[in-house]
Nucleic acid binder design. Structure first.
Lengths: 124, 124
DNA sequence: ATCGTATATGTCTTGACAAGCATATACGTA
DNA sequence: TACGTATATGCTTGTCAAGACATATACGAT
């Protein structure tokens, strides 16, 4: 469970992070909002805290948890390398859809892929 | 293993995706480059294909795998909600670097990082 | 037809982890 | 003090995924 990617692989943890985006919350608030059991919330918070995604302060018996930016930025940095790639593809798709939708004569400047081949896509 | 987040939680799969960013590759190439066993590569590629991260075309006995953008965009969309947050927490220089990354300009870098608080942080 | 290469798949084992439930700890209040 | 509330932690169980190894399938060449 070292990497930030593994941490956010868990849906409940992602939900907690999204919730904390609004404001800091106590364990009880998270528990009620996300309809999880209290131990589950505490355990996920522990994982998130140890990975640096959240931090907490003590308020009497409660603990208030809030978001920390660094680990998510790390994910974002990894993702960044693909942005150039997918914007190229989306542009190609947009051009294509645009041609179809308007049914007008448009010249193709460039193909996204030079030769059309049979592609094995995802399972259905 | 439905969600894109679970798919990219696996380090070898992330390595494959990064490798495919360069160009399409055969299973054998991936195997050698990433020093994984062939069945391991094939299995990871299957997972990636079924989740829409890659597609393949047949070239004689080989299969050439290449990247598909959509699933990573999905991850990026989730991540997007946090950008506003962390840019508020980032210092000015990091914001600056972020801008640089976006429009591929080049400049000098330095280091700064303030964060004073009484806080229960990550494990040591 | 046989062989070699490239890739996919099946089986088995092992380890990680999430959930549930019970219990411990910490703190405020009467 | 005793009690209620808030949170953390311990234990057990079921699930699932990844690696290793063996085997199957597909194709080209001889």
């Amino acid at each position: 469970m070292q990497s930030a990617f593994e941490i956010i692989a868990e849906p409940n943890r992602r939900a907690i992070l999204s919730l904390l985006l609004g404001s800091e919350r106590s364990v009880g608030e998270i528990e009620r909002r996300l309809r999880m059991t209290q131990p589950a919330v505490s355990k996920h918070l522990r994982v998130l805290r140890e990975a640096g995604f959240v931090e907490s302060t003590v308020d009497a018996q409660r603990r208030l948890y809030r978001l920390r930016p660094e680990p998510l930025r790390e994910v974002d940095i990894w993702l960044a390398q693909f942005r150039r790639f997918w914007s190229a593809h989306m542009d190609a798709l947009e051009r294509h859809l645009d041609r179809i939708a308007r049914d007008q004569t448009k010249k193709t400047r460039k193909r996204a892929r030079p030769n059309p081949r049979t592609v094995i896509g995802e399972k259905k």
